[in-house]
Simulated scan of single mutants.
Amino acid sequence: MRFRDRADAGGRLAGQLDHYRGHSDVVVLAVPRGGVPVARVVADRLELPMDLLLVRKLGVPGHEELAMGAIADGDIVLNWDVANHVPEHEIERVIRQEQEELERRNAAYGRTPLEVRDKTVIVVDDGLATGASMRAAVQALRLRGPSKIVVAVPTAPEYTSRAFTRIVDEVVCVTTPDPFGAVGQAYKDFSQVSDEEVRKLLAAGPLH
């Protein structure tokens, strides 16, 4: 299965989340930037409020595609199997760099965080590969006291999807290709999402 674009993926994902439609104690949090177009459709179809959950991958210097961890809302999660091979000063430099980017995005999007305490939170991204960023997002989110966390993505490898069933309350994944190459391979259009698009999508629906 390939999705036309992120909006198409959001529609298919919403179809598997219909049991949450219109519930007053449910909110949707999008992982920017790629998760925002997916989450906008999910939130609109399910008549739910949407906000962002800001998270950044911590890439290994010189091999940035390899995650040594992630940072979300100030909470840092390190994958020590990878991070143990990186000098401590380099880890600290990357953390500072990504923290600055999170702060820049927070300011750029002009958002006030949605209240999630005692609510069911559906965390949406455009897909998972290793899941490092999403693990950081979930860990940061737990500190805010939600009653239930649902990870919802259009595509992920089976092993990553299965791993999340052990750390969150529910995992919803539309397709688990085998073999799994990359998230973008599940999309015909996987264009980069800009900060301006994120702002427009946030403004397109109710932010409660």
Rank of each mutant, 00 (worst) to 15 (best):
residue 102 L to V: 04
residue 71 I to R: 01
residue 184 G to T: 03
residue 68 M to P: 14
residue 51 D to Q: 04
residue 36 V to S: 12
residue 34 G to W: 06
residue 19 H to R: 14
residue 58 L to Q: 07
residue 104 R to W: 03
residue 88 E to N: 07
residue 111 R to M: 01
residue 105 R to S: 01
residue 204 A to F: 11
residue 52 L to Y: 01
residue 185 Q to W: 06
residue 11 G to Q: 03
residue 201 L to E: 01
residue 35 G to S: 10
residue 125 D to P: 06
residue 66 L to P: 06
residue 118 D to S: 11
residue 120 T to Y: 01
residue 6 R to N: 14
residue 112 T to E: 05
residue 101 E to C: 13
residue 182 A to H: 12
residue 40 R to M: 12
residue 125 D to N: 12
residue 204 A to Q: 13
residue 23 H to K: 14
residue 155 T to K: 07
residue 114 L to A: 05
residue 81 D to H: 03
residue 205 G to T: 01
residue 25 D to K: 05
residue 89 H to Q: 13
residue 166 R to L: 07
residue 191 S to H: 14
residue 72 A to C: 11
residue 208 H to Q: 15
residue 120 T to P: 00
residue 149 I to E: 08
residue 65 E to V: 01
residue 49 P to Y: 00
residue 14 A to S: 06
residue 72 A to V: 02
residue 151 V to M: 04
residue 78 L to W: 04
residue 123 V to R: 02
residue 136 A to Y: 07
residue 143 L to V: 12
residue 118 D to E: 15
residue 187 Y to V: 11
residue 109 Y to V: 13
residue 33 R to E: 02
residue 149 I to T: 03
residue 114 L to N: 08
residue 163 A to N: 03
residue 20 Y to K: 00
residue 127 G to N: 07
residue 41 V to R: 03
residue 23 H to F: 10
residue 55 V to W: 00
residue 175 T to C: 08
residue 100 E to C: 04
residue 151 V to N: 00
residue 205 G to R: 02
residue 116 V to F: 09
residue 175 T to Q: 06
residue 181 G to R: 12
residue 100 E to K: 15
residue 115 E to T: 06
residue 139 Q to D: 12
residue 199 R to Y: 03
residue 203 A to Q: 13
residue 26 V to M: 04
residue 101 E to L: 14
residue 129 A to D: 09
residue 156 A to N: 08
residue 43 A to Y: 00
residue 187 Y to S: 09
residue 100 E to D: 15
residue 123 V to H: 05
residue 114 L to I: 07
residue 29 L to Q: 09
residue 167 I to V: 10
residue 135 R to N: 05
residue 4 R to N: 08
residue 163 A to E: 04
residue 111 R to S: 01
residue 145 G to L: 13
residue 131 G to R: 00
residue 150 V to P: 07
residue 21 R to P: 01
residue 4 R to S: 07
